[in-house]
Every structure is written in structure tokens, then in C-alpha cells.
């Protein structure tokens, strides 16, 4: 009899575990589904992300030709665009999206809030070729691709920075928007409080808060505001430390991406003090 009771109890327990197991599995599925759909209102877009951002590289033969950079430049704001470019850097992944600095031999792209599962973010290393479908947008002068999805395609290219020091005061600087650029022989200028840099634009931030860094440089008699974007290079990076160590009057070379915010607002990734 005891055996029977034991068997009956075991059966009940087993059934209970099975039932719990089913429930957990369902919850897990539901969660992942919601994660995928939460990056964009359209569930269609999200499904696309999950399917397209696989680790398998897609053969280019299966794809229609993407836009050239010239075609992208010519496209209207708010029109749908599909480009291929090479990742040069990414900002920190957040909430199933990632901001990507991408470039090809002809020009550069900033891809804002690109739908990206967390496990796929690590695939977007410099040089990786991606095909991006989204909408051309403009925010405070920055031309970018928004609401985009991507897939990795075959190819690799790492851009060499273009020296645009001579163009800093020139209207043609905008033609290099989002490109990896370099600047030479810049002199660090004092902020209003006499410091060489500020945490946040007005000094309201801090190192521990991982605030952006702002510093001003002079070149050919004119002054320019540069930024260390903490989502691109945070307070653990060399460039962050290099800016924190700057002194007024230092002469530096700098590299970074030519982001735009009501004018040129380079996101600096490398500093060399001369």
C-alpha cells in the first residue's frame, strides 16, 4: 500500500512539475516576444529584426542592390532607404536598439536606434558589413537613418580618418558628416570656469555619472566644441581619461566621428597630446 501511495504521490508531483515547466516555458517565450516587439511599434519590423540579425551571413546574390551613398544623399528626408555600409563603431546597446556609426568608401551614415537584439550587438564590430533598411531622417541637422533593421552581409572595411582640420570653418565640412575624421594641432581652450573640459555642457555632470565630456579647441583663430560621447566611449576608456587629463593650452591631435548637432559636434574617440 505504501508503495502505491508513494507512486501516486510521485505521479502527482511529476504532473505538478510538468505543469510548472510548461508555464515557465510559456512565460519565457512571451517575454522574448515582447522584447522583440518593443523596439518599434510595428511588429512586422521586429520580426524582421529577429530573423535578419542571425549570425549567418547572408549571401549578397539574394539581395537587390542597395542604394549608393550618392543615392542616399539624394533621397528625401522621411523616405525609405536601404544601404550597405561597414560598422565603424557603436554606442552602448540599449533596450533592443543600438546607435551605429557606419561608413563605406564614399561616405558615412549614423544609424539611430537600430533594432538589435542584445546578443547581436556584439556582432557589430568595426569592419562588419551590414545592410540597413530604414527611414532617412534629420534631427537638429544630423542626417541619420531611423527605425532601421539590419542584416550582416559579407565584407569588411575599416575607414581611415580623413583630416578635416582645414575644413573646420568651411561650409563643405558638412559633406563629411558622420565620417571618421581627424584634426591636428588644436589648442585646448579654457572653459568659463577656467577648466580644460566640463562634465556635461555646463559642468553639471561628473565622472561617476558617466557624463559626456565637453572641451573647446582653437584652430586658425576660431573655437570649436568637441564632445566625448559617453555612450560611445564611456568613463573607462582611454579617450575619456585623456580628456580628463587635458590642460588648457595643450596642443592635441584628435580623431572621432563627425556627428552633427546644430552644427558640427564631433564625437571624439582618440586624443594625442603633443
Amino acid at each position: 500500500m505504501k508503495k502505491f501511495l508513494a507512486v501516486a504521490s510521485a505521479l502527482v508531483l511529476t504532473l505538478s512539475l510538468v505543469a510548472c515547466g510548461n508555464k515557465e516555458t510559456k512565460t519565457s517565450d512571451d517575454t522574448s516576444a515582447s522584447v522583440e516587439t518593443s523596439t518599434e511599434v510595428s511588429t512586422e519590423v521586429s520580426t524582421e529584426v529577429s530573423e535578419e540579425t542571425s549570425t549567418e551571413e547572408t549571401t549578397e546574390e539574394a539581395l537587390a542592390p542597395a542604394m549608393t551613398y550618392a543615392e542616399y544623399v539624394a533621397a528625401d528626408i522621411d523616405s525609405e532607404v536601404e544601404i550597405e555600409a561597414y560598422v565603424q563603431a557603436t554606442q552602448s546597446w540599449w533596450d533592443n536598439t543600438i546607435n551605429v556609426y557606419a561608413q563605406d568608401e564614399d561616405g558615412a551614415y549614423f544609424i539611430y536606434n537600430l533594432a538589435c537584439a542584445e546578443e547581436d550587438a556584439s556582432l557589430l564590430v568595426p569592419g562588419t558589413k551590414i545592410r540597413v533598411k530604414g527611414f532617412k531622417s534629420e534631427w537638429s541637422g544630423e542626417v541619420e537613418i531611423t527605425d532601421g533593421t539590419f542584416q550582416i552581409v559579407e565584407g569588411n572595411f575599416v575607414a581611415t580618418p580623413v583630416d578635416v582640420t582645414a575644413l573646420l570653418a568651411d561650409d563643405t565640412l558638412i559633406d563629411h558628416m558622420n565620417q571618421l575624421v581627424s584634426f591636428t594641432d588644436l589648442t585646448v581652450v579654457a572653459q568659463e570656469d577656467g577648466s580644460a573640459f566640463l562634465y556635461n555642457w555646463d559642468g553639471s555632470g561628473s565622472h561617476d555619472s558617466n557624463s559626456d565630456l565637453y572641451f573647446t579647441v582653437e584652430s586658425n583663430g576660431a573655437q570649436y566644441s568637441f564632445t566625448v560621447e559617453s555612450y560611445l566611449t564611456d568613463n573607462t576608456t582611454d579617450v575619456y581619461a585623456a580628456v580628463e587629463a587635458l590642460n588648457v593650452g595643450d596642443v592635441i591631435d584628435a580623431e572621432g566621428f563627425l556627428y552633427w548637432y546644430n552644427g558640427a559636434n564631433p564625437h571624439i574617440t582618440k586624443i594625442t597630446v603633443k
Partner: peptide
């Protein structure tokens, strides 16, 4: 400059 749209993605997932 103002803080830019760094957190526009909001907090949908976590919340």
C-alpha cells in the same frame, strides 16, 4: 549644449 536625446528609447522593456 543641452543634453541630447540619449534616452529616447525610454524604459519600455525594463519597466
Amino acid at each position: 549644449m543641452m543634453a541630447k536625446r540619449k534616452i529616447l528609447a525610454s524604459f519600455i522593456i525594463l519597466s
